[in-house]
């Protein structure tokens, strides 16, 4: 197994830990939420799982993402995950804050940047 594949698998494992943490955090928060629920809190774990662990495994089967792209992608996933938890906290309290939108825009921007960077690199190699 190549080093890059090992790196990707290690990355997938870390995302998986993050997903487990989010699921646990969400469950505990919901438990003390007096029946008030938030989809964002409940499904915050989906971001590291679907956008982190899954692509990392897929990349491990093919080729690893360039390092910078991987870092940008990770930052994007982290931003979206924290954004979901933040929104969950606000939902459960029953409040809103426009600053919450920053997470979605920044997270999406980072994912896009990672994707475009990876495309550029693969084009150059091709």
């Amino acid at each position: 197994m190549s080093v890059s594949v090992l790196d990707a698998l290690k990355s997938a494992r870390n995302y998986l830990y993050a997903a487990i943490f989010c699921a646990f955090f969400g469950a505990v928060y919901e438990y003390f939420g007096h029946g008030v629920y938030s989809w964002f809190m409940l499904y915050a774990f989906a971001f590291p799982l679907l956008l982190g662990a899954l692509p990392a495994i897929l990349y491990a089967l093919r080729d690893s993402m360039p390092r910078v792209s991987r870092k940008l992608w990770g930052a994007g996933v982290a931003t979206l995950t924290v954004g979901a938890l933040f929104r969950g906290v606000l939902d459960i309290y029953g409040t809103t804050n426009a600053l919450g939108r920053v997470y979605w825009f920044a997270g999406a921007g980072l994912l896009l940047a990672a994707f475009l960077r990876a495309r550029t690199r693969s084009d150059k190699r091709g």
Partner: peptide, 14 residues
């Protein structure tokens, strides 16, 4: 940056 921003957003909210 993420932690500081989140701390500010929480303070701003509550």
């Amino acid at each position: 940056i993420l932690v500081l921003f989140t701390a500010y957003a929480l303070l701003d909210t509550f």
